[in-house]
Structures are given as C-alpha cells and as structure tokens.
Design a protein around this nucleic acid. Structure first.
Length: 252
DNA sequence: ATGGCTTACGTGGTAAGA
C-alpha cells in the first residue's frame, strides 16, 4: 500500500499537479491539506476522472483536508471528536484495515501568540483522540502537514524563527511518537537537509532553505511492513507549485 | 538571509501562511 501526503495550498490552483501526480505515482491513498475550498466547490468530477474517490472536509478560504483513494474508505471521521473547532483540519478513514488520519496541523504563527495556544490545545486533543483510535485500529498512519520540524536536522541551520522548531512544539510531536508511532521518513537513509517545505520568497527552494514539517507517522504493527519513505521534489519544480512537496510511504 | 511570494476575497488592499 502506497500512502502519500501533500499540502497543495489551494486545490483549485493545484488540481492539474494533483491529477498528474496521481497518474504518475498511483498511490492507494493521497492525503491533501489546505484545500482552501468549500465542500460544494470540491473538484470531485476531475478526481473521479483520474480514477479516484474522495472524502473531504473543507471550508471557505482556509484549511480543508481530503483523502483520495482508489478503493472506498470505511468509517470516515470529520474533525477531532469532542474538540470544538470551526477550522476544518482532520479527516480520517479506514482502508483495508489501515486507519488513515489526514491532518492539517495549526501553524501557530508565533510562540506565545493566541494562535500558538490554539496549536498546542489542538495537538493535545489530537493526541488524546489518537490514543483511542489506536486501540480501535492498531494499524494506523498519521499523515499530514504537522507544522513542526521535530529535530534540528529538520530545519535549515539559518532558520531563525522559533515557530515550528520550539521546544513545546517538539515536545508535542514526541507525545505523538510516544503513542507508539514511528517517523517513517527516519527509518531510511536520507540526504542531509531533506525538507518538505520551502518559502516562495527569496529563492528558498533554489537555496534549499526549508523545513521538514510534512510527516507520515506509522503505528508499531506497520513498521515491519514499511519498505520506503521519501519526498518527491518534482512537483515543487513545476510552474505555480505548492510550497510543499508530497511525502510518500510504502507498506507491503 | 525573513519578507523580498502566493492565495483568497473581491476589485483594492488585507490577512494568512511557515
């Protein structure tokens, strides 16, 4: 099973890239973040024409998540149960016994801000919910844009802001790991300074001035089945790219 | 080397992202 995650920064703008990427890579599931469109505007016909089904949780202008699959998902969940939130950041479904959770984690803006407090509360609610999810479905993949670079090697050395690399954010990431999850990307040898996001400005991609903030965490029963995990930088080189690359995990 | 992009909304200039 091949599962990928990709923050597309507007599905409307990136739809041609998504359709091309599906054709070229044939994932079993593609988790998307930052759709930036209402459910009524979701491009379902185009996705279906590409041979995929979709479940989605969108809103106007901001946020929004979807999972595209070739086979139907079971037990689809929208948002974190019991966590009151106007922002559409979670969708989950079960594919062939694997629980796939797709998340667009809050940005946080600046350490100490109201948005940072929301980020931390959201992470706490996610962690509590996933603890239950793992009991119900031990085979689980947590895919998405975490907006956290978990270790120093996941950020360019010249990254000066605290946001995305602060200790409270990294501690929250470790609490997810401590549920029994493994960062699939780090199971395999990777190049130095391997990132998943680069700012649009200042030639950041060309200079490889980026962060690794898009992750695929897999639960313990999946670890022995995991054969590869990698980023695909090709879409970042296209015209009008998303600022994020897809990240892919392969399970056999 | 951190706003110098990009997007949505809406029709000019903000807000937000990371």
């Amino acid at each position: 099973m091949k599962i990928a995650t990709w923050n597309v920064n507007s599905l409307k703008v990136r739809l041609p890239h998504v359709v091309d990427w599906l054709a070229a890579n044939q994932p079993d599931a593609l988790c998307l973040q930052e759709l930036k469109c209402e459910n009524s505007a979701f491009p379902l016909a185009e996705i279906e024409a590409a041979g995929y089904q979709a479940v989605f949780n969108g809103q106007k202008t901001y946020n929004g998540v979807a999972i595209l699959t070739r086979q139907s998902l079971a037990d689809v969940t929208h948002n974190i149960p019991g966590f009151a939130d106007e922002q559409k950041r979670i969708i989950a479904g079960t594919l062939d016994g694997v629980r796939i959770v797709c998340g667009y984690f809050p940005n946080g803006q600046a350490v100490g801000s109201d948005k940072f407090a929301y980020k931390m509360a959201w992470l706490e609610a996610l962690t509590a919910w996933l603890q239950d999810e793992l009991k119900a479905t031990p085979r689980l993949v947590l895919a998405g844009d975490y907006n956290v670079a978990p270790e120093d090697r996941d950020a360019h050395p010249d990254w000066k802001d605290e946001i995305h690399v602060s200790e409270p954010e990294r501690a929250a990431f470790r609490r997810l790991i401590n549920l029994g999850l493994t960062d699939a990307f780090r199971m395999f040898e990777q190049e130095e300074r391997a990132f998943s996001w680069w700012d649009y400005r200042m030639g950041a991609f060309r200079r490889n001035f980026g962060l690794r903030i898009d992750h695929l965490l897999i639960s313990a029963p999946l670890v022995e089945h995991c054969t590869a995990c990698y980023t695909d930088k090709a879409p970042r080189k296209l015209e009008r790219p998303s600022d994020h690359t897809p990240v892919v995990v392969e399970l056999k």
